[in-house]
Design a protein around this nucleic acid. Sequence first.
DNA 1: TAGTGGTCTAGACCACTAT
DNA 2: TAGTGGTCTAGACCACTAG
Lengths: 239, 239
Amino acid sequence: MDELLEADGRALKHVRVREYVRNLVSGSAPGSPAPSERELVQQFGVARMTVRQAMDALVVEGLLERIPGRGTFVARPRRTASRITGYTEEMTRRGMLAESQTLLARREQAGPGVARALSLTEGDALIHWRRLRRADGVPMCIEDAYLNEILLPGFLQSGMPTSLYDALDARGLRPTWAEDSIQADKATAEEAQLLEVEPLTSVLRHSRRAICGDKVVEVSRSVYRADRFTLWVQLGSDA
Amino acid sequence: MDELLEADGRALKHVRVREYVRNLVSGSAPGSPAPSERELVQQFGVARMTVRQAMDALVVEGLLERIPGRGTFVARPRRTASRITGYTEEMTRRGMLAESQTLLARREQAGPGVARALSLTEGDALIHWRRLRRADGVPMCIEDAYLNEILLPGFLQSGMPTSLYDALDARGLRPTWAEDSIQADKATAEEAQLLEVEPLTSVLRHSRRAICGDKVVEVSRSVYRADRFTLWVQLGSDA
DNA sequence: TAGTGGTCTAGACCACTAT
DNA sequence: TAGTGGTCTAGACCACTAG
């Protein structure tokens, strides 16, 4: 007998069928046939509605595709929207070494703009974290992150992490939604000095408001050297 | 009797129930209760599985939320990824008047880069459409669009539309997926002249590869005046 | 013609919530 | 205790596809 049929007899029947089918087809090429519903009814000794419930879940998930009169097949993988990433993950993905140098990390009182963006009240305490970020040892961007202290108790005291997004992840606060704005501009004198370019060199300004559920977890403004950085974005998703 | 119960007796029962519930709750505040499943069984004289099928669809859609032991309620609207829009729709959304002046519209042979981006073979025929695009009468961007002629038969002959995306829509080719890249740069002499700015002024370069299903429907390169344009992007979606 | 998924019935028992 | 959604059964008929 298939060991998966025996595994965890306490599990719900439709879950057992679902996971059996998931394991069966994982790795199969798109278009490969899945077992027919009546076949699974026989194998598992359950009602057809139970099998349909299991298969429905996999169809909604995008793993399977039903074709009336033909059968159920492994679906072409759906394109999905970009994972929301921070600097460290993004540069690593590009095969570069991401490093950061903290220029400033302290509690501040929220000004009107940042307060609104973070869904705080003006004057509330927030964390302001400014970093010079390098890629392969060369300055890439200056990032000012503003964080809600309430969501990150002890953050400043616990030693700053390399990756803000890893730290958010660890607290179950990885953003699932982000509102970004992107502008072309020229570097100010101070920015130019930090980025090691001439003043008035082209830079890309990138602002983000990152949200997890109902909570605004990060508001940030970054300025990237235009000669080193192209922003890539994937939009939309398959129906 | 409720007129919706009578409407289109040919429709499938689960569809009738689904649309009845959709109409009933549309406009209701999140958290408002939907009818209970057994209530709908009574009202429509159908089996409970049929009602569950109807409700399942609305739950997957994100309109309803089930809470075991309590009931079914109107869900908080999900955040969804940005609709993929073109210049005309985007400027209209910003409350500006979008106008375009065609600088060039002709068949060309695909060069290596554009061929690969459009999933064509080098030397294949494509449509090259260059426009100066204004917002409220002032130059905003120059856009070079490259289109697969096979997908748009008679496009050049039929008179160019104002909105490429409307034209794609009409042919069932509205992109559901886009891969964009964004860079900061300085205007070339030619770009500066068309955009009515000084040479070396900051510009935002925006490239797009837009896809509908398996078909690459548009490859474009746009250059925006940085003093007039900020790109906005929403990323991710609720789970 | 045999097999497939799509729809539908008329029940059942369970765990959970609210009163 | 009454009501809710969650799970499950054992059938049924339909339209469609493929050999």
